[in-house]
């Protein structure tokens, strides 16, 4: 299980530097897959790696803060929604994407001071939602693949 998480972590390390600006949230795809196909602990490990690498991308302590806020909050929300059993994969993923962006914006407000950044909220809500939905759909085949791989190893 830990090995799987490590592999995911490695794949993740190749992904996040790809797209500047509005990111596709491919890292979240890995977290989501781990959460459903491996275990909560595996997903947490992947999430931690993702947060750390995301922080490195920004290259500063503040960067780590953005990454941590977005990653941790979205992880917790996705876990809570999954546990509640009321939402499907796409819903969980979409919520994760949205709160990830909200959390980062909140940190940005705290760091930069002022609520002017609220102007970016609608855009961030929509982009988080769309990427979350895309990732949710993309996760379906990933999860079944990962589950099959897991069974094969046993």
């Amino acid at each position: 299980m830990a090995a799987l998480a490590l592999v995911f972590g490695y794949i993740e390390s190749l992904i996040p530097t790809g797209i500047p600006g509005v990111k596709l949230g491919l890292g979240n795809l890995v977290v989501l897959t781990a959460m459903y196909a491996v275990s909560v602990r595996g997903a947490a490990a992947v999430s931690a790696v993702k947060i750390f690498l995301g922080g490195l991308l920004f290259g500063s302590f503040a960067g780590l803060l953005y990454s941590l806020a977005g990653g941790a909050v979205s992880f917790l929300v996705m876990l809570a929604l999954k546990k509640s059993g009321r939402f499907g994969l796409v819903g969980v993923s979409a919520a994760g994407g949205v709160v990830h962006n909200i959390a980062q914006l909140a940190v940005a407000c705290a760091v930069l001071g002022g609520i002017k950044l609220a102007y970016m909220l609608p855009l961030l809500l929509i982009s988080g939602l769309v990427t979350g939905i895309v990732v949710g759909f993309a996760a379906v085949p990933c999860i079944s693949l990962a589950q099959r791989a897991g069974k094969g190893k046993k």
Partner: peptide
């Protein structure tokens, strides 16, 4: 499964509405 789908759609619609409201309030 249908119930979950409904919940997903409601969640997505909720976010869209929230985004629209914020957009209009600014």
């Amino acid at each position: 499964k249908k119930k979950r789908l409904l919940a997903d759609i409601l969640l997505i619609a909720g976010v869209l509405i929230a985004a629209a409201v914020v957009w209009l309030l600014l």
